[in-house]
Amino acid sequence: MTDLLVALLAVCAVWTGWRVFRVDSMVRATFSLMLSFVAVGAIGVLLSAPYIGVATVFMMAVEMMVMAIFMVMFMMNPAGLNPMSMVHQHRVSIGAGVLAFFGLAAAILVSRPPSNPVAPDADVVTELGLELLGPSMLIFETAGVTLLATMVGAVILSSRQGRFGSADEGSRPPGLTEGGDPAGQRPDGGGGGHHHHGGHG
């Protein structure tokens, strides 16, 4: 029974994961990804990891809401009114994905992992709490500090400018040759490939 439910949920997770790259609307893709996470969380609950499963669902629901907002901000086609396919190196990507799947699947089918399921009466949430605030406290706290650093980094990266104005104001990438034009496009746009040839001669 559990087997069947787990298999059903796994298929559901994979199918919604696949829909992420097939639907025409970015917002629909976001909710599809959320359904995939919810299915994984439900598998966690079924496989006697209630805390991890429920935490996954809650966290991913919030994360996907944030993602949906960014979708609407950045996408030209949030409503899915016309077909959307923005891909590059399509064949290589399909090949890499298929190769990864079959390689890992072969490894799974060949190997025999030990069969040692959780005892049905095990108090897994209590054990997790004792582990988090006991032997593995340093790891847990490191994760906390990492998240703090992430917050600081996200604010710095997305703020319009630094304390003393724009960091690259008046800067110019170095030239390919001495006094020559810089490589690639100018960061400040310029527009239309207007180049000064010769420089200092």
């Binding site: 997770a13 994979v14 994961g17 696949w18 992420v20 790259f21 995939s36 994984v40 891909v87 590059h88 190196q89 399509h90 290589v92 990507s93 399909i94 890499a96 994905g97 298929v98 990864a100 799947f101 890992l104 699947a105 799974i108």
Partner: peptide
């Protein structure tokens, strides 16, 4: 595994 494969496809494509 299937999720990893699909994710790899998406990240590359």
């Amino acid at each position: 595994t299937a999720l990893v494969g699909i994710g790899l496809y998406g990240a590359l494509s």
